[in-house]
Design a binder for these strands. Structure first.
Lengths: 183, 183
DNA sequence: CGAGCGGTTGAAACACCTCAACATTAGTGG
DNA sequence: CCACTAATGTTGAGGTGTTTCAACCGCTCG
């Protein structure tokens, strides 16, 4: 799933892909009303937690509360890295960054097999994420293929050269806080 | 103050200006280590709260904990709006958006006088924020002046036509959650 | 009074966009 | 299983917004 915001002009920006296992709408608990949409970009199975139960958690389990709070703050950190990407990285760096990030995050749940994982977005959706037109996404992917860095076909990516890909993205996984993920 | 992230290539992206009264580093409490820098862009007076005291708050005051949690989530919402800006808005829309946002946020603390407020950033810093070069920031500001929308001189802005400025930015203050700010 | 920083300007380059056509794949009904 | 259709991916040519580089101006501060 992904967070989405629209401009009146019809343009859409996707932000922060949510992977299986993620607690998607913890934000809504404190905010009550959401400032953005949550959209699916693949088939999803969703669990629902009533806010009342979360409120009880905050009353009874301070430690768990801090953990949930941490999770929303990690979400914010991921979002912040995307601010950097959109503000400063070139097209090819942004796409590279995305695939590097996903590899690390999917690894945690065992959804990566030999640097290959499912990637259900169309090129148009990928463009809405990295702030590019579908046409330019297409050309950027071709360039990554041409350089022998990755393959993307039938909704599945394979990263052929992780080191090189992370290098062109200037990828630094610190912002993912994987070392303190509840695992 | 502002949050800042660097690329190895030396490029810097500023994210989310922090105004007087904001609790700047609530993120650090749960994250322990920060993924970004906090920089000053004006003279600042900073209060320090030991994490241990915050931990006690979470043990003893669930309501206050939820309020602090809410504050970090509003930070995240503001950040998300900037993701939209950087991904989809043009140069002139981004700059307009920033000045509209600041007007609303500064209003809360009474720091706006007749649509005029202090704006301590240089054009270069403004560029690091909106993802533009100093040169283009300069030209964009000239365009806003030419259209009679705002004046910016000696570290002070005056918005001459709030409606028009909000309109070109496609500004929607919903993401600021002003109606539930602790005030 | 000089030095340095911030702001301004012009010209040329470049990354990405737009538009429009075509190719390929996936999905649907007969 | 095939035929048809719609969605997705690919390509080319030309346009545009923003960047780059380099120069110059005007404050402010020491």
């Amino acid at each position: 799933m992904a967070r989405a915001k629209d401009l009146q002009s019809g343009q859409r920006q996707l932000a922060e892909l949510q992977l299986s296992g993620d607690f998607v709408d913890l934000h809504g608990f404190t905010l009550k009303r959401l400032d953005h949409d949550i959209v699916t970009v693949s088939r999803c199975l969703v669990g629902v937690v009533p806010h009342e139960r979360l409120r009880k958690v905050t009353e009874l389990h301070p430690h768990l509360t801090r953990l949930y709070w941490l999770m929303t703050n990690i979400d914010a950190a991921i979002q912040r890295e995307w601010t950097l990407s959109l503000g400063r990285r070139t097209a090819i760096q942004r796409v590279a960054q995305l695939f590097c990030e996903l590899r690390r995050r999917l690894e945690v749940t065992g959804d990566v097999e030999g640097n290959s994982y499912d990637f259900p977005l169309t090129q148009t959706e990928l463009g809405e994420f990295v702030g590019l037109t579908p046409v330019h996404v297409n050309r950027t992917l071709q360039e990554l293929r041409r350089r022998g860095l990755l393959e993307l076909d039938r909704r599945r990516v394979r990263i052929l050269d992780v080191g090189a890909l992370e290098s062109i993205a200037e990828f630094d996984p610190a912002y993912l806080y994987l070392e303190r993920q509840p695992h």
